[in-house]
Amino acid sequence: MPLDESNQAEFYELRRIWSAHDDPDIRRLALEVARYRRVLAEVDKLYKTMTSLGATRLAVI
């Protein structure tokens, strides 16, 4: 089930969370959210590249 994009924290909100909290766990969480968004965007880009090249099955190792 796709996530509702309207509920996702925007970059500026993550930045505000980082600035507002001194707790290292909360700061780490904000960094991880930003990082995983970049990772998933890269995975999506690679998937689209593979499908545009005609790859219908991806090898699973």
Rank of each mutant, 00 (worst) to 15 (best):
E42T: 15
F11W: 10
I17W: 09
H21I: 08
D44C: 02
R57G: 03
E42S: 15
R38F: 07
D44Q: 06
D22F: 11
Q8K: 14
T49Q: 06
L46Y: 14
T51P: 00
M50D: 08
Q8F: 07
A34W: 02
A34I: 02
L53S: 11
R35K: 10
R15W: 03
V60M: 03
S52I: 02
R15V: 02
T49R: 09
A9N: 03
E5S: 07
I17K: 10
L53R: 15
V33I: 15
S6T: 13
R27A: 05
R38H: 13
V60D: 05
F11N: 09
H21P: 07
L53V: 08
T51A: 11
H21F: 14
A30L: 05
I26W: 01
M50C: 14
T51S: 12
D22K: 15
D22V: 13
R16F: 04
I17H: 02
R28C: 09
D4F: 05
R57C: 06
R35D: 02
A20P: 00
D4Y: 07
E10M: 07
L53F: 12
L14R: 03
Q8Y: 06
I17Q: 10
A34N: 01
V43Y: 12
P2T: 05
N7R: 15
L29Y: 06
M1V: 03
S19C: 08
E42G: 13
P2D: 11
D4R: 10
L14Q: 01
E10P: 01
V39M: 05
E5K: 12
Y12K: 13
V33H: 01
A41C: 00
D25Q: 10
E42H: 15
S52W: 04
W18A: 05
R15Y: 03
G54E: 06
R37F: 02
D4N: 15
S6Y: 03
R16W: 12
T49P: 00
L46A: 09
E42Y: 14
Y47K: 12
